[in-house]
Nucleic acid binder design. Structure first.
Length: 242
DNA sequence: TCATTAAATTGTT
DNA sequence: AACAATTTAATGA
């Protein structure tokens, strides 16, 4: 166990089962897929490791195969603020890869995870050659824009129920995270990190949302019953505490 | 496959 | 923040 957090990750080729977790591979033509599949690499980051850090030059476009990541940023005072959680099936960083800028956020696993990476050059090759890939990216950018706005607004909310509802609604987004079924593997402690609340408060909020029949709380996870209802809660409560 | 034990997670003060 | 109860995962016969 290293004493200092590191961006170094041991890379390896993806297994067959891991490739099946990549939602956009199936949108490529066979020849395109043959071309880029060998370029895919995976790593196994642990909590404390960085998948990418603010300011580092873009090397890969990343996707979650398994586990759970958090996207965060440090403000001027050095306070860390978490924007969103990224569950399995989620791919991120396309905006910065497109512009060949440096990363604008930190990405760290909340638990041991498996992360896939597509080299920036390969990403650009797909943008230039694959219609299916471009469709995927367009959907992705559109959905994430909405999520970022929701994340911004949620930081002004002080109502724990709406904050937890917002985090859950984000994680259950079927467009961004097709790898998440109706049950999401997440502990209440992890949810507390993402929502910026204590575990106790998250626990209470989850019970309340369960009573409203929006979710079902299980050991080590949450089952979604009513996604639209969750989204409604996070909006309704917003006007309450102005 | 089952029983035992350790570890993780949850519910409550 | 600490504790007890519950669920899961790991181990080995």
């Amino acid at each position: 166990m290293p004493a200092h957090p590191s961006v170094y990750q041991r890379r390896r080729p993806p297994t067959r089962m891991e490739l099946d977790q990549i939602p956009w591979l199936g949108l490529l033509r066979n020849d395109e897929r043959q071309q880029i599949e060998p370029q895919l690499v995976v790593s196994d980051p642990q909590p404390g490791d960085y998948v990418c850090r603010v300011g580092r030059p873009v090397t890969y476009w990343f996707g979650v195969i398994s586990g759970l990541l958090k996207m965060s940023n440090d403000d001027a005072r050095g306070q860390t603020m978490t924007f969103l959680g990224i569950p399995p099936g989620g791919w991120f960083g396309e905006g910065t890869v497109l512009k060949r800028e440096s990363y604008r956020y930190n990405i760290q696993p909340l638990r041991p995870s498996v992360v896939a990476g597509l080299p920036a050059d390969t990403f650009h090759w797909l943008v230039d050659h694959s219609l299916g890939f471009n469709r995927f990216i367009m959907h992705q950018l559109n959905e994430r824009l909405g999520q970022f706005i929701a994340a911004r607004e949620a930081d002004r909310l002080n109502n724990p129920e709406s904050r937890v509802a917002r985090s859950l609604a984000g994680l259950f987004n079927p467009v961004l995270y097709p790898g998440v079924g109706d049950v999401l593997r997440i502990t209440q402690q992890e949810l507390a990190y993402l929502a910026g609340l204590s575990r106790q408060r998250v626990n209470e909020a989850l019970q309340a949302l369960q009573t409203m029949r929006l979710i079902e709380v299980t050991y080590g996870g949450v089952r979604i019953l009513d996604l639209d209802g969750l989204r409604r809660v996070m909006i309704e409560r917003r006007s309450d505490n102005r």
